[in-house]
Structures are given as C-alpha cells and as structure tokens.
Design a protein around this nucleic acid. Structure first.
Lengths: 163, 163
DNA sequence: ATGCTGACTATGGCAAACACAAGCTAGAAT
DNA sequence: ATTCTAGCTTGTGTTTGCCATAGTCAGCAT
C-alpha cells in the first residue's frame, strides 16, 4: 500500500468524484502567485509601506501595485491612512485577521524550502519562540493534540446542513 | 504597534538587509504554480497514474506531463515501474519523503481556503484523525509545544558555522 | 516656481503557464 | 497484421506574470 490519506464514504471510489470547488484551488486564486506570497512574507516581517514592499520583495512597482490592490481587495491587507508629523497623509498596508491566518502556509513554505532547497540545508534566518527560545515549526495536528501523518489523515464528505 | 514578527540582531534594521536567498522564494521556484500544488494534493489523495492526475486535477495532458516531470526531477515524486497481472509494465508516480514534507503547506492552503474563500465557509470535504476522529488542522508551534502567534515569532540570523 | 519624495500609473515587451487539438509509441489483445 | 489503450509528445494560440522604463500627482520644502 502506498502512503496516502484515507478516503471515506462516497469518496472512497476515486473515479466517482472530482475535486472541483476545492478550497486549495480557491486559495490559489487569491495567493497563487510568487509575488503575492512574498508580499505576505514581507507583511509578516513588519513591512507596511509601498516603497518598502517593492524594494524588499525585489519586484517592480507595477507588480507591487497590482498585487497590493488584489490582496487588499481580497481582505488580507487593509489600507489605512497615517500621518508622520509635518507630513501629508499617507497610506500603509496592515495585516488583517485573514492575512494573519495565512501564516502557516508561508511558514510551511519557509520550512520546506529551508530543509529541501537551501544550499547545505541552511536557511539565512531562523525562527524561534520569543517566550522560550525553542525553534518554531509548522505541524499537522488534531484536536486531541496528536501529530497526524498523512497515513492517518481521514478525508470524508462534509455532511449536508439541513434546515 | 502593528502585529508582526520580532526581528532580532542585525535584522532589526530592516533597511540594512533584503531577503534574497529566501527559502520561501526557493520553495516557490519548485512548487509555485497552481498545477504543481494541485498535483501534490492529488498525490496525497492517493492518485498515482498519469491519466488520473490530468483528469482529476482538470488540466491538460501537456501540463500534467510537464508538471509531473518537474516534480519528479525535483524529487517530490518518484516514477516507479509496476505491472498489473497480464499487463505490460507501466509507471506510477509515488510520493517521496520530500513530497510528503510539503503536506503542511497544502493542508494550510486547504484550511485557509475553507475558512476564508469557500461559499458559506463550508468546504466540500473535512479532515479528521483516523485514530481519534478529532478534526485536523495546521498549527505553528515551538519545540516546547506552545502555539506561536505572529507576535511571538522571533526571526534571527542563522549563526555562521565555523570549522 | 521649482524641485523632491512617496506612491503610484502607463506602455511595451518577453517568457511561462495554460488550453485545445492532434499525433505518436509500446506492448497486450484480437 | 491490426486494433486498442495508457501514457505521453508536439503544434498552435491565448492569457498571465513579470520586467524595464517613463510618466503622473500631491503636497511639503526651498
């Protein structure tokens, strides 16, 4: 038996269904580009201003403008006015709840890239918990706190909600 | 103070560095396309054969062939021969360790898409732990087992390895 | 009034991702 | 020998992501 998730109910006959309306596909419609992911990374690093985004992500202004608009339209970032003393009003891009919720994905990419694609397996930066200094990583867990490997992952149809 | 990770050491001056050689970018070089992510999803569902991949991911044969080659070249999948009784030898694509390690990313996208982009917030399938039936999700944790929110995430330069 | 700075917008072009359609190939079945 | 099928390959055209360069605009400083 090859290693895979466990398909339950009507899903067990794989030829009888297709993963249209898949949440993964929907997510990729919003954050499926390289520049979107890297802009979110920058937001996590604390970047809020237009010029910082395009300089630090190393993309052109046009791409930064397009992506920032898409991400604010989609609700991952919010454009909010601020005024430095004696300056005119400007706008900064701040993370929303929805944007913060994407953190596991971006951190997951970080971890995977660090382990499998970085030269010598050594990433340029490391991640730790401020409270206890232990290294941080992304884990698949269940509500009981167990770590869940792929072979113990059960996929079942969402029951219909009746009214 | 806006909500962001804590940058330590020489990273604290954000104008003094740029995230080139970022593991996130490297990861996206390999799995940065929609079709790559969706093919990995299918592999987690247990799909192994060419025809199943392109039919179930709803991409063309050409795209499936290109992506499968890239993913095997990159080491996330392995092409291995098999023979059904009285059939000629065929090839199937099976997950490697490297491919399985990407699971948190794909599951993270699933969870984010389900929560934020699915109609009515209801995904078509749900994920549970086979051992205890508790719902499964992706979490950012430290070695001590604490859940780590963005504001408690410390980013510091990797110390140089001397020899 | 002129320039500067932060935040964009516009134009043009290239390459990658993808779609659609057709063709090819190895070997088992007939 | 011919057909069938799984597993691709090739050809053509469109769309999207991105780059590079240049231009705009608002307001503060000079």
């Amino acid at each position: 038996m090859t290693d895979a998730a466990v398909l339950l109910g009507k899903l067990s006959d794989r030829s009888a269904w297709r993963a249209d309306r898949c949440p993964i596909g929907k997510a990729l419609d919003v954050v499926g580009t390289r520049s979107a992911m890297l802009i979110m990374r920058e937001a996590y690093y604390g970047t809020t201003r237009f010029d910082d985004f395009f300089a630090r992500v190393d993309i052109t202004e046009a791409v930064a403008a397009a992506r920032l608009r898409e991400l604010t339209d989609a609700g991952l970032l919010e454009r909010s006015p601020y005024r430095s003393p004696g300056q005119r009003t400007r706008y900064e891009y701040v993370l929303t709840e929805k944007g913060r919720d994407l953190l596991p994905v971006v951190l997951g990419l970080f971890e995977w890239g660090a382990k499998h694609v970085s030269p010598g397996g050594r990433p340029p930066v490391q991640l730790r918990h401020t409270e206890c200094d232990a290294p941080v990583n992304v884990q698949v867990r269940c509500g009981e706190g167990h770590q869940v490997p792929l072979s113990e992952l059960a996929v079942s149809p969402t029951p219909r909600r009746h009214r």
